[in-house]
Design a protein around this nucleic acid. Structure first.
Lengths: 74, 74
DNA sequence: CATTATTAGGGTAATTCGGGAT
DNA sequence: CCTGTCCGAATTACCCTAATAA
């Protein structure tokens, strides 16, 4: 199964990648938690947060992962 | 082999275009990695991603290439 | 044919990376 | 153990106009 899903927010089926899963930059995540962007990256290095790497080795963080940290065991 | 059919691991095949070789626009790839579409084109220029050119010089990216970047030799 | 969105370019400011010292 | 800061180098975002796509 491809990681590039094709279900639109309204439930319709569209061909193409899943655009519903937003990716956040280190700076954006840093603002959420009120810490330095480098601290966010250290969390990734120590395995506290999952991260996605761009082809140029920059880190991106899934919105769902951040939401999970903000809402533990709902 | 023809790009117009997909052969599953069990030997069956599906009719229609090969979805693993679908071409993605710069904007679609950009949303996958959470970057600007221009950045995706820069990846192509610097050889980080293979790209296909339309007759009008626009860039397209093979979904299989994008999948490979997200799942580096598992 | 007209309209709207996307893309290709280039130029510049901002962000990110990694290491290392504090 | 965890965090914020300094550094240089690399990477990216946003600005614009013209061309292409739907």
């Amino acid at each position: 199964m491809s990681p590039l899903k094709a279900v639109a927010p309204d439930g319709t089926f569209t061909t193409g990648p899943d655009t519903t899963e937003r990716l956040l930059t280190p700076g954006e995540v840093a603002r959420v938690f009120g810490v330095d962007p480098k601290t966010v990256n250290r969390w990734a290095l120590t395995g506290r947060i999952p991260s996605v790497r761009t082809p140029s080795n920059q880190r991106r963080y899934r919105q769902s992962d951040i939401d999970a940290l903000l809402n533990p065991s709902p």
